[in-house]
Design a protein around this nucleic acid. Structure first.
Length: 201
DNA sequence: GATTGGATCGCCT
DNA sequence: GGCGATCCAATCG
């Protein structure tokens, strides 16, 4: 296991801090067929207070209960009939915050990612972003599913490691939400081609 | 028990 | 740039 695994304490901080700090770090996942990894290039913060878009804004429910647990766990939930979305739980116990991982730059295991995504080599050559640029695309490519909901992220098989510090962080409103749409809580590595959605100018 | 809407993607035009 | 697929969670009765 690589040396610079992000420890539990990394996640037990205010959500926006964790969101920004995750940019440039590397997400790893190991299963029976080996390891895949990708660099985090885009995230969104979902806050415990004054954030109507946060799943926990309505209180604790069976779906969102992991958000109330200790920081550094995976919150994976099912969305839009087809897709699993991957979040990292933040803040102190009982304070429900999370960071949604929205895009990765593929590093290791790109051939397995391609197969999991059901893409041809030609498609990937033409547009590599199809692999992991998007919150549901990256869970498909990495093999992350709801079975991993609640899993600790401070040790294998699913964990982060230190990466580079991005030169410039872009900030916009979050994508695809109705409530809380005006809050500037989406963060991305400016200039990175794997960011999921071109920033509005 | 039924209804509604969602932190999306891919295909079509 | 628009729209359909697809199904679970939450809400209401």
């Amino acid at each position: 296991m690589p040396s610079k695994v992000l420890p539990r304490a990394f996640f037990a901080r205010p959500t926006v801090k964790v969101a920004r700090a995750l940019l440039g770090c590397v997400l790893h996942y190991r299963d029976s067929r080996g390891e895949v990894s990708g660099r985090v290039v885009e995230v969104e913060a979902y806050l415990p207070k004054n954030d109507p878009a946060c799943h926990a804004a309505i209180g604790k429910t069976p779906r969102n209960q992991v958000m109330f647990q200790d920081a550094g766990r995976a919150y994976v939930y099912f969305c839009y009939g087809n897709y699993d979305l991957f979040n990292v739980v933040t803040e102190k116990i009982g304070v429900p915050g999370a960071v949604l991982i929205r895009a990765l730059e593929p590093l290791k295991g790109t051939e397995r990612m391609r197969k999991r995504r059901g893409l041809s080599r030609r498609q990937v050559e033409k547009n590599p972003r199809l692999l992991t640029s998007g919150p549901a695309r990256l869970t498909l490519a990495m093999g992350i599913t709801r079975k991993l909901n609640g899993m600790p992220l401070w040790k294998p098989p699913l964990y982060f490691s230190m990466g580079y510090r991005p030169e410039a962080i872009g900030v916009t409103t979050r994508i695809g939400i109705q409530k809380g749409a005006d809050l500037p809580l989406r963060f991305y590595c400016r200039g990175n081609p794997y960011v999921s959605y071109p920033p509005k100018k």
